[in-house]
Design a binder for these strands. Structure first.
Lengths: 336, 336
DNA sequence: CCTGGTTTCTACAACGTTGTAAGCAACGTT
DNA sequence: AACGTTGCTTACAACGTTGTAGAAACCAGG
């Protein structure tokens, strides 16, 4: 059975508001009154009705995190960090899976703002600035690529620089025929475009010509796509001496395909990924990758959101860049 | 700017309740009235205030899924299925990370029921029946091991049978010195106990003696723990010809440790896991494992919960068993 | 004992929604 | 013309909470 302030008040012989004051830690309550109320609360196992509180206060204490897919390790790890960072602000996180499709993302963007939620951290794939317009001033922070000059705050990693660095790392190992896996031409492929740009920039800098045949598309960025793309490259007679995969799951798939083709990593082909997911530290071989500071991304996002909620909602949008580093492991440098 | 029923009503020249009726699809509204209201709704971009609706209706349309850790692939995959299954009932899923500790789980169990949530799907590690008492009749479904005869519905897999089957599979390959990784003595280790029981049952059945030295504990069930346990076994001079790891991440860690010790899988040591996570289909070698039907687990859980919500809340608790199968892959049978 | 200030408590209204009950038309039937 | 029926609409109250404003109790200083 559920009890209300009123029940507690009757039992303690005080007014409803006094109970409310005790619950909310209001200062001026006589110690004996407070004790009586607390006793009644305990006896009835009273817990406040958050719907009512939210209605009254206009705040819910819940923020949403919308990601394309929860069982992509990168997003799962990110989610963990966001939950932790949000907890520090006393927030509960409602995690929403968009599926990554334009339609579903639009629905999340427009539909979630039904007063259930104070703010939104959104990791979009397909969203455009227009879609954001529907949000009606819902405080929001976007992760990843900027949605072309939309009105929202952003937390990004420098994809171009990171991709360039890791490609340069491969070049530095003496590799010259460097394949890239994960290119995408759809509008959802913003990350793909930036990482491809970094890849070509590194080739340019080293005076290596861009060879279209070395660039393999991947419809999604799952292990299966990485394996398929790698098999496809090999079947087409392309013999790269290195592969830069646009994320780690693609890379793990590529590792698998290379293994099946009896090619050694890194001796025959060096492999690098992007994201630094847990799997890559235990794969065989362990995976060289770009390690974005996920903890920082999460913290920055939550802090940006907190700024919006507490402060000026109409301040100009800010963009923060989270740091990244190169994690070199066996898939490029071999076993020590 | 946010609008209310009242604003829409004024704009459309009708009463608040009529707008409410339109929003809720009430039948008896004249077509032209409905059109006027809908126009006003569109113009103002009205969206209902869920806090108010929830307060009025006593239902929130949100259920919680509480799991120990989101970035354990098994739980992430499960979460995806639960979200999908819940969507079919029109529910939003609030995902909660308990961290798996007794303290935190108890907090979730007692604290989440603050009227924010209609029901709870809980995958506990450390929870006891006492902890559940605090829930005050919050409809709940537990996943995994039964919390000793608590009052809640359960969805389980037959851990003992599954562990026995996969151990028998290893025995069937001619292996005799079969190690087990993942045993736990803490109260949280209910799964560990059951899987260990299945393991010993299979040994018994085959007339193989139980050797304590072959059983390695693992404080948690992460890759790092699996690798550490495997290294520990090898360092202790134990030379198993097979390893049954109590989940897949342990197994992936064990694969890694075996690789570092230059042991071949499955030639020298066959390796089997439990959970059938995505990683195991692409690891090198691919991982033989017990594949619980996660989609079914999620669906059953959601349906049990739906039954509680719509039906008799005081019906006796039910326990449903989700099917599992054996997925034999390279880590035991080698490359084809 | 009064004054003014502080502490402690309370009554009331409001947050935005929907269920209830009732009102008002318009209709067909007697 | 009176009636019941049906379709459409509305006023009101209530869900459980908290902010506001003010009342009551208390205290210290004259």
């Amino acid at each position: 059975m559920r009890h209300r302030l009123k029940d507690v008040a009757e039992r303690a012989g005080v007014s409803v508001k006094t109970v409310s004051n005790v619950v909310n830690g209001y200062l001026h309550v006589r110690p004996d009154t407070r004790a009586r109320v607390e006793e009644a609360i305990a006896e009835l196992n009273y817990r406040p009705n958050l719907s009512a509180r939210n209605l009254r206060k206009g705040r819910t204490g819940v923020i949403a995190l919308a990601v394309p897919e929860l069982d992509i390790p990168y997003f799962a790890e990110l989610a963990r960090h966001v939950v932790t960072a949000a907890a520090a602000h006393g927030w509960t996180v409602l995690i929403d899976q968009t599926g990554g499709g334009p339609e579903q993302e639009r629905k999340v963007a427009s539909g979630i703002g039904d007063h259930m939620i104070d703010g939104l951290i959104f990791s979009p794939l397909a969203l455009t600035a227009d879609d954001l317009a529907g949000l009606d001033g819902m405080p929001m922070v976007l992760l990843g690529e900027r949605v072309d000059h939309g009105p929202a705050d952003h937390v990004v990693v420098d994809n171009v620089a990171a991709a360039q660095e890791i490609t340069a790392h491969l070049i530095g190992l003496g590799r010259r025929r460097i394949a890239a896996i994960g290119s995408q031409r759809t509008p959802e492929g913003a990350s793909a475009r930036l990482r491809l740009a970094g890849y070509t920039a590194a080739l340019d800098e080293a005076g290596i010509g861009y060879d279209e045949k070395l660039v393999a598309p991947a419809p999604a960025w799952h292990r299966a796509d990485g394996a398929a793309a790698m098999r496809h490259l090999l079947a087409a007679g392309v013999r790269p001496d290195a592969v830069f995969c646009f994320n780690d799951t693609l890379a793990l798939g590529a590792l698998r395909a290379l293994h099946e083709a009896d090619l050694r990593v890194p001796e025959d082909v060096a492999v690098a990924g992007f994201d630094d997911i847990e799997d890559g530290r235990f794969s065989i071989p362990t995976l060289t990758t770009v390690a974005p500071d996920k903890e920082r991304i999460a913290r920055l996002a939550v802090e940006l959101l907190a700024g919006r909620l507490d402060g000026d909602r109409d301040a100009p949008p800010r963009e923060l860049t989270a740091p990244h580093r190169l994690a070199t492991r066996e898939s490029t440098t071999g076993r020590p």
